[in-house]
Simulated assay, not measured.
Amino acid sequence: MSSVAVIGDIDTVTGFKLGGIKKGFDVGSDEEAKNALDQLLEEEISIIIISEKIAKGIREHINKRIGSNVLPMIIEIPDKSGSLDTDSDPMGDLIKRVIGVEMVK
């Protein structure tokens, strides 16, 4: 496991490809996003970058497939329209998964 991949809208995927990420999925629906995630999990990608809006639409699928596993790391990023106001803290969840301790403010 050593690759990085991105799942997002066309602009997000294109930007990451211009930055050197080879594996990217431009998705337009939750079903396409689920299929892309499943394919990446089969390929043993170590880091999956996904836009917040897409992750929000497939949250249950992500939790079901990833569970409490450390890898792959799912990193949620804002898309071109900006960050979502969410009740969850994706980076805090990632830290908790990796080190096993919840960081408290």
Rank of each mutant, 00 (worst) to 15 (best):
G57I: 00
N35K: 15
S68A: 09
P72W: 02
S51H: 02
M91I: 14
D11A: 12
E52I: 00
G28I: 08
V13Y: 05
T86K: 08
V101H: 14
G67L: 02
T12E: 01
S88A: 09
G8F: 05
E102F: 14
V101Y: 08
I7W: 05
Q39M: 12
K53F: 00
V104Q: 15
I74V: 09
E43P: 01
V4W: 07
G100N: 05
A33H: 07
S88D: 13
K105P: 10
R65L: 11
D93E: 15
I95T: 02
G20C: 13
G100A: 13
P78F: 12
I62A: 05
K34A: 09
D26W: 00
I62M: 07
I74R: 10
G57Q: 03
F16T: 06
E31W: 01
G82P: 10
S51P: 04
M103R: 09
I7C: 01
S29K: 09
A33M: 05
I74E: 08
M73Q: 11
I62V: 11
G92A: 14
E32R: 13
G15L: 03
A36G: 06
E43F: 11
K80M: 11
I95W: 07
E42L: 10
I21R: 03
I77Y: 06
S81N: 13
M91T: 10
K23C: 09
G57N: 04
I66Q: 01
I10T: 11
A36P: 02
L41F: 04
G57H: 00
S46P: 00
D38L: 05
D85Y: 15
D11V: 01
I54N: 01
T12H: 03
D26N: 06
S81G: 10
L18G: 09
G24T: 00
I77R: 04
E43S: 01
L37C: 02
L84V: 05
E102R: 15
S81C: 02
A33R: 03
L94N: 03
S81H: 12
T12C: 08
V4C: 12
D89R: 04
K56F: 06
D89G: 10
I47P: 04
T14S: 15
D26S: 15
E43T: 00
I66G: 09
K22F: 12
S68G: 10
V13M: 04
V27L: 00
G20D: 11
D93K: 14
D38C: 08
